[in-house]
Design a protein around this nucleic acid. Structure first.
Lengths: 344, 344
DNA sequence: CTGAAAGCGCTAACAA
DNA sequence: TTGTTAGCGCTTTCAG
């Protein structure tokens, strides 16, 4: 049995352990491990060898406290099951890959309270920046963002007043343009199917823009219906059936997302409804999924991945210079007519 | 102009600032903010008021360093676009909600190198536990996990040797049972359609189990095809077409996931192929999406959410006691025959 | 119930 | 090229 002094077996290794094992000062070990300053090749190798041998993993907590620098970027989104957000996150990850910055994800479930506590929690780790979905936040959240002293990028939406930078699309405009295209194609009895979520501001703005677009042509929404929870595809089917039963003379349905739109499309094909002749359909997002459907649903690309990339690039750029200052990036979603709007 | 001494305007607030603003020692402020020890109601209120007034956000970096405790749980998954993982993450978030622990997510893109660096990065923040997908890791990763001195839970899969705890299903068995069900239903010319990802070990194990199940009846896979990237639904269509063209007498196709299975199903319905009479189909995962399809694809539930919950519960339990010790939880996926396997 | 002192493990700044 | 010193902002511990 060894009689060595073993302080606390579960304590993890420190720079000091590596220092002792390699016979080099802690400071030099630190320099080697961070590739900083000039270190002779011999020492470097000795240190690296010792660190590897011991299985040393640096303690970023101590490092961050000492250097007052944290390589974390807080990313806050409302949901992961929406399919849209994972893509945004991918864009962020990708862009941050070689910047030395690390994204940390938080989810709010579309709840302002959750957003507040997730934000608070994340800010308490003093990240280098925050990327947060949406422009609507509680007063407390806005205050936290404002006082954080780090670059903030609000994403997805540009219809409103950002705290700092913003990258997104105008959902009002997206709804508006879809309405114009639909009216332009000659549809007149138009219904809307969407999510009930009171805090999905973007879906709300799309609907408002959509109604404004219809109003230009003197048209009002003929019917509308909202859902929450469950399989979106199935909901799309069910709601389409319900709304058509209630308002049989509809000649168009605008869905607040592609998933329910796809459900609606499948329903119509099942029932042998003439799409887009008798009934036109459109969704929103431009998700991959649509490529595999029997017919291409009309939609509008939400530029999800690019939004993530641009937002990450802003943070990465700012974190170099320490500068803060609102960048305003509005991307333009492209209308894809697909096969579910007649061409007139 | 004010002549006050303003140290660094961008430096964030410290306990000291709150201490000065409230006229109470830093120590007492700290106690109030952590709800620790006895503090008189008056002091408590004064401190809380001052903290709120200033907009103080505690510095967890310093707190963690001093207390040697970090309320973070590292969660490492291969992908977010798979639909499966967001559900696991939801399960984890939900379970951790009121434990004071916070999940932090990392994504590896099915790359061992990425896994290694993400793991290293996360361990350097000294989390309270690690939840990581899969049992296959590089030697370096295994070593890191082993030496971390914190509870580790490997999830999704139980076919192999865990480092510490494990929560998942047996993918071999899942494949095996699906094979038995298919053979039992009288199918004989069976094909497999899957992902090419060399590092998707679970898909591989399912296929191996599947082949073993067929072998019991003296059957070999009649054909197989692999894909990577792109819209899974579309790939499912294309690959189904391709494999049926190449091997027209197939009477069953087993897909490595529900998405491509759904694509295949839509293809068959389009082409008027008699499902499940002439051709049977089955997928894997039991995703929500299937509920909205014109016909219910046979599948097997992967218990995604529950896996997340159980894994999180293990970490939460361990972090109280500081104990480490392998828990072994094997969940049993349920075969759902749906409408795409004939009942014989 | 409250405060003072001593670090946590690392890095900035300076000295050798 | 390397080492020394002094904290980073908080919590632990112990003393009032």
């Amino acid at each position: 049995m060894s009689s060595k002094v073993t302080p606390d077996p579960r304590r993890s290794l420190t720079l000091r352990d590596v220092s002792e094992a390699s016979g080099v000062s802690e400071m030099t070990v630190s320099r080697v491990l961070r590739n900083r300053g000039d270190v002779s090749e011999t020492t470097r190798e000795r240190v690296l060898e010792a660190a590897k041998q011991l299985g040393y993993v640096p303690n970023k907590i101590a490092g961050a406290l000492a250097s007052q620098r944290v390589n974390l970027v807080a990313v806050i989104v409302p949901s992961l099951s929406n399919l849209v957000f994972p893509e945004v996150l991918s864009g962020i990850s990708e862009e941050l890959e070689d910047t030395g910055l690390q994204p940390v994800f938080g989810v709010t479930n579309y709840l302002e309270d959750r957003e507040e506590s997730v934000l608070y929690e994340m800010l308490s780790w003093r990240p280098s920046g925050v990327i947060i979905a949406g422009l609507e936040h509680s007063d407390a959240s806005r205050a936290m963002l404002q006082n954080a002293g780090i670059p903030i990028v609000e994403i997805m939406d540009v219809d409103g007043e950002p705290v700092d930078s913003v990258v997104g699309i105008s959902h009002r405009r997206a709804g508006l343009e879809m309405a114009r295209a639909i009216v332009g194609a000659g549809y007149r009895r138009i219904g809307f199917l969407g999510t009930k979520m009171p805090h999905d501001h973007r879906a709300r703005k799309r609907m408002e823009g959509f109604e404004a677009g219809l109003a230009e042509a003197g048209i009002e929404l003929a019917d509308r219906e909202f859902y929450s929870g469950g399989s979106a595809l199935l909901k799309g089917r069910e709601m389409t059936e319900a709304i058509l039963k209630r308002t049989p003379d509809l000649d168009f349905i605008y869905y607040s997302n592609d998933m329910i739109g796809a459900g609606g499309l499948l329903y119509c094909l099942d029932k042998g409804i003439d799409v887009p002749g008798k009934l036109g359909l459109a969704g929103f997002n431009g998700v991959d999924l649509l490529d595999g459907l029997p017919r291409r649903l009309a939609t509008m690309d939400a530029c999800r991945r690019e939004i993530g990339q641009r937002a990450a690039a802003i943070i990465a750029g700012r974190s170099d210079t320490g500068l803060i200052g609102g960048a305003h990036v509005e991307l333009t979603p492209v209308l894809q007519l697909g096969d579910t709007i007649r061409s007139r």
